[in-house]
């Protein structure tokens, strides 16, 4: 077992071990992309699907679509065919074009709400976690807002304003901010107890600098994960708002609106409801997969929680 024994010439009646490279062929250098896919399948699949939806939304005008708002009463409620891939709706509009352009609304709402709610929640959470007197007031307000179910809160806010994409984004953002603020505050409170924060305080670092240098970077991982979930939830809430008539105006093609328009006829023409439903579900699934993957990749400890 020691070096001299190995170095000794092998006796002739003993089988000689084959060269190592034969037993362990050199690992084929896998592409970096494939290696990433193997390690993080959820991120890869979710990310690819989200990217696909993004491309579809961006390139909608070039993907054999027609104007999604063109009315044509002579070709109402056509079944899907070679001319109208997903059929036409009650007003003769091409559903394929409406679904592709509808992706824009869902994605814009999802991404904007995720970004705005994260930013607002981050600021509120850090302030609340660091400034004692503000904490009590801010958290009571957040608790109050959190005790209104998010869909109901967004619905109530939408009842105030005219339906527009901007107002939908604002309403859903307000409904989502309290959860982000709570998450960030929790992270900040645990970070405050860390020795390196004590060290920074002892060294005379000012509070804003501590927030920026020592606290903020450590909140980014959980915040990113939370932002993906908010994106998914925002897309669902947008579709629900549009579906019940409190979302984006009916003139804008959005998946919720297409489903709302198909509702009256769904027992005879189910495809009007089901086609946007599939697109919505796949997109939300993709974003959720991305979120699960990011959660496992960014913080293995979080993987144990819900």
């Amino acid at each position: 077992m020691n070096a001299p024994a190995l170095a000794a010439p092998a006796p002739q009646d003993l089988a000689v071990a084959p060269d190592l490279p034969d037993i362990f062929p050199a690992a084929k250098p896998r592409g970096r992309v494939w290696g990433f896919v193997r390690r993080h399948p959820a991120i890869a699949v979710g990310g690819a699907l989200v990217l696909l939806m993004l491309l579809m939304a961006l390139l909608a005008p070039y993907l054999w679509t027609v104007d999604p708002t063109t009315l044509a009463t002579h070709r109402r409620t056509r079944e899907p065919s070679a001319a109208y891939w997903f059929g036409t709706d009650m007003l003769g509009r091409d559903i394929y074009s409406r679904v592709l352009f509808g992706a824009r609304v869902s994605l814009i709402v999802g991404f904007s709400v995720a970004l705005l709610a994260s930013l607002a929640g981050l600021v509120i959470g850090i302030v609340s976690g660091f400034i004692r007197w503000a904490d009590a007031v801010i958290m009571r307000i957040m608790d109050g807002l959190m005790s209104i179910p998010p869909i109901l809160l967004a619905v109530a806010l939408m009842a105030l304003t005219r339906g527009s994409v901007g107002n939908v984004i604002l309403a859903i953002t307000i409904a989502e901010v309290p959860r982000v603020a709570r998450l960030v505050r929790g992270v900040v409170l645990s970070l405050r107890e860390q020795p390196y924060v004590d060290a920074a305080v002892a060294a005379g670092t000012r509070t804003p600098m501590i927030m920026l240098r020592h606290i903020l970077p450590n909140t980014l991982a959980p915040l990113t994960v939370q932002a993906t979930y908010i994106c998914a939830s925002a897309m669902i809430i947008e579709a629900i708002l549009s579906f019940i008539g409190a979302g984006v105006p009916p003139t804008v093609p959005s998946w919720g609106n297409i489903m709302a328009e198909g509702r009256a006829l769904w027992q005879v023409k189910p495809y009007i409801v089901f086609i946007p439903a599939v697109f919505l579900s796949v997109t939300v699934l993709a974003v959720n997969l991305l979120g699960d993957g990011l959660r496992d990749a960014l913080d293995p400890r979080m993987a144990k929680e819900v």
Binding site: A232, I240, M259, W266, P270, F274, A277, L280, L285, N288
Partner: peptide
């Protein structure tokens, strides 16, 4: 569980109504 989170409630509702009722 991932599907349950991702498929919006009205989509599930329409699928169920279509299959089991219609």
């Amino acid at each position: 569980a991932v599907f349950g989170f991702s498929v919006p409630v009205f989509v599930v509702a329409y699928i169920l109504a279509y299959v089991f009722a219609l």
